[in-house]
Amino acid sequence: MLKQRPAPKKDFTAADMPHNRFGVFFDVLAQRFSTLFVLGLILLAAALPLIAVTIIRNLNVARAEAFADESEKALLIYSYINTCNFIAIFCYAFYAVLLAGAFGVIRKLVWQEGVIFKHDFFTSVKENGLSFALYAAVGALLYYLVQRSFRGLYFDSGTAQEIAAIASAAAFTLYMPTIGLSFTQSTVYNLGIFKKFSNSFLLSMRTFYLTLPVAAISFAPLALTLIPNFTVFVISLIALNVVFAPLASLANVLYADGVLDKFINKEHFPQIVDKGVWRNGVDKNEKTQ
């Protein structure tokens, strides 16, 4: 027997729909929590190679701590971290392929469209997986270079090493904000990989004061994985993927939509400006009820 709650006396109208992107965020969270949870489980599965590499790295580093000779210990730890961070580039690329699927589903949720989960997820993987993997791999490579160059200062604090460290950090700082915009563009426009990146770079430069903090908040919880306690580390990784990753993706899509609306859609694609948002309780694309 299908139990129904008593029907409200009033019709649900456009005035009851979310009026801004914050409203859309909480509306999707309330209405489609189970969909977000399933996406979280998929992302957790996608993160398993990365989690394995991180655990192996941490175990090797812990084992290296047992070495008495300080310089030998430092070199061993440096070597383990570099090797694992390099392997992690491929793990991030793999993760990003499935993240593409998640973004495809989230795109439908944000635009208040019907979701056919399996179809929408795998279509997005097929259409956007390669670009997501590339963007993620570049980000992971820059992160590897930052780590390598800053840790390398322990062994060589010369000018060249310092320049390399600063340059890699600058490149990483400039690159990371573009990722969310690149990912979101992939679910909206049919553009080449480099065109989307150049759009994202220009847009993130124009909105750096906002895009950088948004990117920082999106990636900040990764700091939890630096906690030395193994149990906390594992719980953090699970929570990060199952809970935080879908929410961060949702927030990123909403933020990026705002930027894309302002700088691209307003002029070129007015029909998708504020799609999924019912400002003033009116949707220009729908009849009100």
């Binding site: 409200p8 019709d11 649900f12 019907g114 009820q289």
Partner: peptide
């Protein structure tokens, strides 16, 4: 989407029945 449009309920596509009036259900 065609069926929803025919009944003028495209707006409600992402809603669950609990939010809808009897007529909308």
């Amino acid at each position: 989407n065609d069926a929803l449009g025919l009944l003028d309920i495209s707006l409600l596509s992402s809603r669950k029945p609990a939010k809808l009036s009897g007529g909308q259900r």
